[in-house]
Amino acid sequence: MAKYLVCGNYIGEGMRGLMKEGGSSRRSEIEKLVASLGGNVECVYYAFGDYDIYGIFDMPDSAGMAAFSLQAASSGLVTVSSIPLLTPEEIDEAAKRTGVYRAPGVDWLP
């Protein structure tokens, strides 16, 4: 499964709904949506600052994460951003892969 950091902001009525229903209720709804898409919620945290809510999800693939984002954002009451998370071992594997790349404006390859 792919792991994602999910960040969201409540908008207008969404924030009023959070205040009315409470954080535990919203976490439960998030868990239901993620499970219905074949994923698992590792954690959910509320915060103040750039985002109102953060979560770490295990999703079967990028399409599952996109489906979550589309479903939540289509309400018009929340915005969602997701960031793929990679393990150190995945970075090790990526570092072993080589490709050919020339930086813009540079006429030599390292």
Rank of each mutant, 00 (worst) to 15 (best):
S28A: 14
P60M: 09
V78M: 01
V80G: 00
M59P: 00
D107H: 12
G105L: 09
E90M: 13
N9M: 05
D58A: 02
S74Y: 11
G55D: 03
A95N: 12
S74F: 05
G55F: 03
D92H: 10
A73Q: 07
F48G: 11
D50F: 15
L109Y: 14
A63R: 07
L85Y: 09
V44Y: 00
I83S: 15
L37M: 02
F57H: 04
R26L: 10
K96T: 10
G17T: 06
L85P: 02
D52E: 09
M15G: 03
T87P: 03
I83V: 14
Y46N: 02
D50A: 15
A95W: 12
P88D: 09
M15N: 09
Y101A: 08
T98Q: 13
T87N: 02
G49Y: 04
I53E: 02
V100A: 15
G49R: 07
G14P: 04
S62Q: 11
S28G: 15
S28Y: 05
D58C: 05
F68D: 03
S62F: 14
S24I: 02
Y10W: 14
Y101S: 09
A47T: 10
E21A: 04
K32W: 05
A2E: 06
T79F: 01
N9V: 01
T79N: 00
E90H: 12
C43L: 13
A103H: 14
N40P: 01
R102P: 05
M19L: 13
L18F: 08
D50Q: 15
K3W: 07
G12M: 12
E21N: 12
P84M: 08
A2D: 10
E42C: 03
G8H: 05
K96G: 07
M65K: 04
A67H: 05
V6Q: 01
V100H: 14
R102F: 13
G14W: 00
P60F: 11
K32R: 15
E21D: 06
S36W: 11
M15A: 09
T79C: 00
N40C: 08
R16H: 11
V41C: 00
Y45L: 02
L109P: 03
S25K: 11
D61E: 11
G39H: 00
D61W: 09
E13K: 09
S81P: 03
D107Y: 11
L70F: 07
M1D: 07
E13H: 08
G55E: 05
E29S: 15
G8T: 10
F48D: 11
L37T: 04
V44T: 02
